[in-house]
Amino acid sequence: MSELSALNGAAFQGTVTVEDAGLQGMITLRGDLASAKLAKAVKAATGLAIPAQRKIGFGDDRALAWMSPDELLILTPYEDAPAIAAKLAQALQGEHALVQNMSDARAMFRLAGAPGVLREVLAKLAPVDLSAEAFGPGDFRRTRLAQVAGAFWFDDSTTARVICFRSVADYAYKLLCVSAEEGGEVGFYG
């Protein structure tokens, strides 16, 4: 278990606030998402239903994201991740499924700011249509952030979260900071 998050709480104030979101529990679940047994196990372990394609569902302190047709990402408080992963693995015994606590392999950033600028900061880095009609809270997108793989979603119109591999956290953080630098506003999303 790691005691420090990748950027150890670094924060940057530009056109939006970019900050290391701290330690975040992330569990990868791979298996047949159409399986009733899997859905039941996920519901029992997280209290959340399996999200639709490219969606993320939120609970009190957890979330469930659709990663691919056979992969889910479970977001939980960091301390709870091992127990939830163990519970899930137990429930899925005999199923063709894999549960792995990936918390220490990933990093998460929290971006907060005015809705338009927030979208812009992400849109500069990813080949994704970030207009409000195309992408809103509840949507989840795996893509690239400049040269590295990443994913993001919106908690609400003024908060976005970005995840990437911990090994590239420094790169992703600097990228987000440059994208959020004062004077770099484009004004495309109003």
């Binding site: 394609q53 490219r54 047709p69 080949p127 893509t143």
Partner: peptide
């Protein structure tokens, strides 16, 4: 066809 995204070249 798996995730329904209209992905451009650099994502592929």
């Amino acid at each position: 066809p798996y995730c329904g995204v209209d992905a451009e070249e650099t994502e592929l």
